[in-house]
Design a binder for these strands. Structure first.
Lengths: 335, 335
DNA sequence: CACCCTATTGCAAACGTTTGCATAAAGTTC
DNA sequence: GAACTTTATGCAAACGTTTGCAATAGGGTG
């Protein structure tokens, strides 16, 4: 066990060639005779040879690493627990790997304030994908200004000079509201936090649809933290105080919707008979809850691909623009 | 924007000292006069200086990176979607950062077959945390034999010559079964896949408790894939074929439990009156489902800390042993 | 045969740190 | 004041790649 690490020079010696030839051979450089190339590659495989990435990165001035920066809103150091965000990260991971890059999982705690310095100057990554615009928008701005290759998962309608990829939140909100009304809702409720960029768009799509149906008076906004716990408490509280003065809920996320549904069920409010519920995201639980949750699906797989390809395009010096993903309404039992 | 990257030598020149002094100053080496040290650190901050990690790693022969290798069972290239696993990863992330290390998120797809070569020889990480024993146990074994610093999240009762951290699955299963019986269950059902190391332990704890209560005859095992979907279908199928011939379910995970509960609810089987349900993990949804789910809680926070500290201890050359986390029964409405 | 062109390989410098050793200055002791 | 210790700094080598350029050999051409 633990035989001393083979370096390129050793491999070269074994093959009876110079280090440079070995290097080129491993990189499949056509300068080297095909036969020699194959011989060396074979030898490398036999000896389980692997290049020293640190040396390689130093020499090449690039890392073949993409950092994913989870930009949490909470000031408290805390683990992410929204399954949707995690799904996004997981799909980014796949896309990154497919492109032959590695994924450095990071967060504002590690990166500090000077993201460009930390990731790019520090040669930790070639580019960064920020998940969640959060409230640290200033740091994103700064990093972008400093020239850091960057793509943000967030609301693509936000006016910014960096590239954003995200769902068509406005349309999502509109479709959700229209769906609720098509099911007969006369008094729909929006559950969420419109201050937040993405959710604001959802709310404004919701309002637009409500308005053109002439239901503005009867509709309501219930501002809450975007957790299922907060949703549960808010709906509970509302039922106790105001009674059942709504007949539909558009929740800004599935987790929020599920929290709300729990409160309804506990009070024997029938879903969907008394209240229709629509969520957003389409996490796995949406399908498994009872009743299953109608929701606006965000295509995280496509999101991952797009985020990564746009970042790589930037690395190639191309000019890239923000873009918007299409969303789909998934009808289930809750509406 | 984009002023050329400052290197250590430049910083040194600015400070009017040699590169070596600058290097030592940044590393807070007491060899350098305190005053000089502070002056240089100050200067570094002003200029947003950051060391080139690639160069540093090359020179130091260590990376200050820990790789987390998600070892999926599925052969299909696929994103992780069990919220519990993601929670584990997220808590590892925190623990890793707290120790001043960075986290490389990887998987068997990237790492190939020779993990030692890829991570250690390739100087991508100083050590690896494998999440999920999966079926690639041979690769873990090989990497460990090759001397790769390694800790595995899995079943600590598994006989292996590498370090494993995990919950006391046997006890968890036992407690779950005892709880079901204390609630009056006479015919409990285990829902899961006993072939899998961790789940096998849970099953065997379950059986032990059942046996000492003399209910072996009446209890059942329903083998399924460990997804909520499979659980839903299995319970549905069983109800259709056998009717309600059980009065308690111990599901091997919360997601499985939730799938099962959906099937029960759809058929108007009352929880907990007709069937008591206990899950495992304590994911966020356990609390939000209706009825909320009684479950055996795994302490992922502690898991993260322990995994990381054991790995770091290995890096320091210490001898470390596997260890078992305590679990807690969280009683909720489903039982 | 002298010349040039092409195909293949090797030499050596460079990437930016860190650190053992040498050095220099200042302080201590007898 | 000589000899020695202590304190603070600098020199230069080393980590393991990659690559521009030089070099060599072989083959073709006039």
């Amino acid at each position: 066990m633990q035989q001393k690490k083979l370096k390129l020079a050793d491999l070269a010696k074994l093959a009876g060639v110079s280090t440079s030839t070995a290097s080129r051979a491993l990189n499949d450089n056509p300068l080297i005779k095909l036969e020699t190339r194959e011989r060396i590659q074979q030898l490398a495989k036999e000896h389980n040879f692997s290049l020293n990435a640190a040396a390689s990165r130093l020499r090449l001035q690039k890392t073949k690493v993409i950092a994913v920066l989870i930009n949490l809103d909470s000031e408290t150091e805390q683990s992410i627990d929204d399954p949707f965000l995690l799904k996004v990260v997981s799909d980014i991971n796949l896309a990154v790997n497919r492109q032959g890059y590695e994924l450095l999982l990071s967060n504002s705690f590690m990166a500090g304030e000077d993201w460009h310095g930390y990731f790019i100057d520090g040669r930790r990554a070639d580019g960064v994908i920020v998940v969640g615009q959060g409230k640290q928008q200033a740091l994103i701005e700064a990093a972008s200004k400093a020239g850091m290759p960057l793509v943000v998962w967030g609301d693509p309608k936000t006016k910014a000079d960096y590239v954003i990829v995200g769902s068509d939140n406005f349309l999502g909100g509109k479709i959700a509201a229209e769906h609720l009304m098509s099911k007969g809702c006369k008094a729909p409720l929006f559950l969420g936090e419109p201050e937040h960029a993405e959710l604001g768009e959802r709310y404004s799509g919701f309002c637009t649809a409500i308005k053109s149906a002439g239901l503005t008076e009867q509709s309501q906004l219930l501002k809450i933290d975007i957790t299922s716990q907060a949703a549960y408490e808010a709906i509970n509280h509302k039922l106790r105080n105001d009674g059942l003065d709504f007949d539909g809920i558009f929740a800004c996320s599935d987790m929020v919707a599920l929290g709300a549904m729990k409160a309804l069920k506990e009070r024997y409010v029938s879903i969907p008979n008394d209240v229709h519920v629509v969520g957003f995201d389409d996490i796995a639980m949406a399908d498994i809850s009872f009743p299953s949750l109608t929701t606006v699906r965000q295509d995280t797989k496509q999101a991952g691909e797009l985020l990564v390809s746009k970042l790589l395009a930037q690395l190639d010096g191309e000019q890239v623009a923000s873009s918007q993903l299409e969303i789909t309404l998934i009808e289930r039992q809750s509406s």
